[in-house]
Nucleic acid binder design. Structure first.
Length: 258
DNA sequence: ATGGCTGAGCTACTCAGA
């Protein structure tokens, strides 16, 4: 089973890039973030032509998450946590993975900048509520895959110049501690599990030639619960979509799991 | 280097992103 996560920065502005990538990479399930559109304007018909069902939690202009899947995803839900600002940031569902009922959690974590504003408080509160809910979830089901745009740089190795990010909402220690707290509940950052010292990124700014200079961040992650760790075959960051014309500022991360 | 791009909504400009 191939599961891919990608922050596409608008599904409609990016539709041609997404379709050609889907055709090339052939995922079983694709987690999308920042679709930036309401459900009724999501291009479900285009994806249907390529053999995918769409499960959408949209919002006008901002945020929005969705699953594309070759097969049916069960118990799809848009209310994993109570979002105080009612932003569309989490969609969940269930599939059978190696005969185990497995929960899929697709997230778009708030950015949190600037740090001296209510946006940063929102990010902290959001993470607090999310972790609390994951704890609860683990009591019922220990097979969980969380993936998406976490807007968290886990460690110094995960950014081109960590000193520039020390006071940034993506790298502040109290945010990284939240990420560690989540992992310590019983998850693995799969990219780092397979690549102990490799320096790769999933995001590059649009401006100032960040892509050309490889000034990037690793902020898109796959967290797989301990129970499923032995099922994981591979993980890779596919940089090709970021090099195309009219790219998203994020690039996909691809998981192979039995 | 707190914004030098980019997108949405809208049709002039603001808000948001990370």
């Amino acid at each position: 089973m191939k599961i891919i996560s990608w922050n596409v920065n608008s599904v409609r502005a990016r539709i041609e890039n997404i379709l050609s990538y889907v055709k090339e990479s052939n995922p079983d399930i694709l987690f999308l973030q920042e679709i930036k559109t309401q459900n009724e304007n999501f291009p479900s018909d285009s994806f249907k032509e390529y053999g995918y069902n769409s499960y959408v939690f949209g919002q006008k202009s901002y945020n929005g998450v969705a699953f594309l899947s070759k097969f049916k995803i069960e118990n799809v839900s848009n209310n994993f946590i109570k979002d105080k600002l009612k932003q569309s940031r989490i969609i969940t569902g269930e599939i059978l993975l190696n005969k185990k009922k497995t929960k899929l959690i697709n997230v778009y974590v708030p950015n949190g900048n600037p740090v001296d504003t209510e946006k940063y408080e929102y990010k902290k509160n959001w993470l607090f509520a999310f972790i609390k809910k994951i704890k609860k979830e683990l009591i019922e089901n220990t097979n969980i895959i969380i993936s998406g745009d976490f807007n968290i740089i886990p460690e110094e190795i995960d950014v081109y110049d960590y000193k520039r990010y020390e006071n940034d909402a993506l790298f502040k220690l109290e945010i990284r501690k939240k990420y560690r707290e989540l992992i310590n509940l019983g998850f693995n950052d799969i990219y780092r599990y397979f690549n102990k010292s490799k320096q790769e990124y999933t995001y590059w700014d649009y401006f100032a030639g960040s892509w050309q200079k490889n000034y990037g961040l690793r902020i898109d992650h796959f967290l797989v619960s301990n129970n499923l760790l032995e099922n994981v075959k591979s993980i890779s960051i596919n940089k090709k979509p970021r090099s195309k014309t009219k790219p998203s500022d994020h690039t996909p991360i691809e998981l192979e799991i039995n």
